[in-house]
Design a protein around this nucleic acid. Structure first.
Lengths: 346, 346
DNA sequence: CGGAAAAATGCAATCGTTTGCAAATTGCGC
DNA sequence: GCGCAATTTGCAAACGATTGCATTTTTCCG
């Protein structure tokens, strides 16, 4: 008991756990305490101050589970990363992680907590409904459509507070925030072409819809310039697999191409290393462009030409739209512009 | 109403929201439904199957808030990243993000959800108590001690289910999982010395306790070899600030040192770029070593000699210890070995 | 000082699930 | 078919905070 007491003195945990305990100490009813702590105007300033003082002294915090249950809202936003086309993508891909960081900051700023879930849709077809139906979250942000576009569309019909990071497709029903991937792809390809490349290749997994759009953009550029179609070189994102796949692609096609557009900077950096190892000059023999403008793009040798996504703006957009949907508003998707960052690989 | 119905048919949300709704449909009492869904042995197999069937058909999920409230446990583990010594560290430092990824996987595997919070202790002295006292989490994992060692120690006395990623200090009271930073620092310095360096410098912010230990390890090695003490070059982790700070350090000391031990690979990569820009040969003029063995360490030119931390093992350790503490066990800290990865910068 | 309006507080139901205990049902041996 | 034990079920009270409504207290004005 001595232990209990000293712990309580120091940390304030222990004696006053519930609003009722606090009410007893303050000599009022639990209802009044609730109102005082919620800062409602109905309670006398003096009583409020007294209650606040006792609360502070004992380090009291109202139980959010109980509060959530009663008010039918939790103050928690779910963030889910579906790992559809490539289970280990996220670990390697610092893009998603950076976005997550900004999201955490932005949600905190708005008074929400963040519940994170990574799911593997092929093991668990029900991933999105499960999360939404758990009763633990007020809304959900999906980071990346992966290969789950249809699943997300289905849910969007019946569930409002959802916003998705990804690619916008004409006529889709779920609200997305994302970069104009097709434009970005076109910009990258145009740059490669302007630098002298004529036979282009695309490095990435086009079953992911964002990447497919980047590929399509590159294809647009090639067609417009009357060049042969861009060759698709399927590549996973996990570093182990990507490295060998890239090596194989280059071994097979190095002579036949003179421009590579990589779906992400991470892949581009890997590709650069591999080209370097094989003695292929960049941008001399082969021009190279990436996508994302991650910190690594600045640090490769030579520094990487790439397409910039504004991650911070993306996070702000996601949260902003979600909050408006939470408030009952209907919202349109938000497409952020892509911007070419010309460095030295093309 | 038509809308409602069709939404329900597709997604199963709508009609059967509570266990009571389900009970009515099944013709039993809510208690029985609860037991059936929890898989308790007390309920007749036939009734259970019927209940499960109806639940599946309507996509019913029990409300976790209510369940949590009643059972006094939430199934959620809090993960908090204190941003003490450098507010933007996390965004740049892919180490923490990678650890977070593994943590998410490991917690999911164990049936827990993850609630993520980033806090700035200087705005909010109460950050840890607040999180713990929210009633939303069963336990907490703190990623990085930052400059909050004392705060964490205080809490550890009164609150069991907490495990911290960071550095272990003799006699501390909170349970930590982390790499043997001092050993790692020594290994790095020894390698620099073996490669011929005699006047070493340490790049990093030694107010962060993990970094201080790495620095101390390097100092040990220098002392043991009768070399002059390692020079401390304070550097923040955020890429913008780090870049200029490093440039300044190098401008000021390039001639006076021939070995640099960077507190993280990210800093090492930045440093390498800067040295390269100034025409300093690595490892010819200056030897360089990093820490972490992030993917980037493989991709610099030349590839980075560094000290490997086993991030996946760290995540497993954190979760394992936390679960044992949740079960009431007392646990010791877990120190993972550091391992030198010799590449080409030293 | 009386009385009505305004302000502050208390009461009790409620959110949805779990669980101890009591009641009802079933099974079984004779 | 009876009695007793073993299974299944139902009942109702929690968990802790919120809130509509009723009640009390205060304020203010004539």
């Amino acid at each position: 008991m001595n232990e209990d007491k000293s712990a309580d003195e120091k940390t304030g945990r222990g004696t006053v756990r519930t609003i009722t305990d606090l009410a007893r100490l303050a000599g009022v009813s639990p209802g009044t305490v609730s109102r005082a702590l919620a800062g409602k105007s109905l309670v006398n300033t003096k009583t409020r101050e007294k209650i606040e003082a006792i609360a502070r002294e004992h380090g009291f915090r109202p139980n959010q589970m109980a509060s959530g249950l009663r008010r039918q809202k939790t103050g928690v936003i779910g963030v889910v990363i579906p790992l559809g086309h490539d289970s280990r993508q996220q670990i390697s891909d610092s893009f998603f992680m950076t976005l997550l960081g900004f999201l955490a900051d932005e949600l905190t700023r708005q008074g929400y907590d963040l519940m994170l879930r990574r799911v593997v849709p092929e093991n668990d077809a029900d991933w999105l409904d499960r999360f939404i139906g758990s009763g633990m979250i007020d809304g959900v942000i999906v980071i990346g459509q992966s290969d789950q576009f249809d699943r997300i569309e289905d849910v969007a019909d019946g569930y409002g507070p959802m916003v998705v990071w990804g690619n916008h497709t004409e006529g889709q029903r779920h609200c997305v925030v994302g970069t104009d991937n097709r434009l970005g792809g076109r910009l990258a390809a145009e740059r490669l072409i302007a630098a002298g490349a004529k036979r282009l290749a695309f490095l990435g997994d086009t079953t992911a819809i964002e990447f497919a759009a980047r590929f399509a953009g590159a294809q647009d550029a090639a067609r417009r310039m009357d060049l042969p179609p861009v060759m698709a070189l399927p590549t996973h994102l996990s570093p182990e697999r990507a490295a060998e796949e890239i090596a194989a692609h280059i071994a097979a096609h190095a002579g036949a191409i003179d421009g590579i557009f990589a779906a992400t900077d991470t892949l581009a950096a890997l590709c650069l290393t591999e080209l370097h190892a094989r003695g292929v000059a960049v941008p001399g023999d082969i021009k190279l462009a990436g996508f994302d403008d991650l910190p690594i793009a600045r640090q490769t040798v030579p520094p990487l030409t790439t397409v910039r996504q504004d991650i911070a703006a993306g996070a702000r957009g996601l949260v902003d739209l979600l909050l408006r949907r939470l408030a009952g508003e209907q919202t349109e998707s938000l497409i952020l512009p892509a911007q070419l960052v010309a460095r030295q690989t093309a």
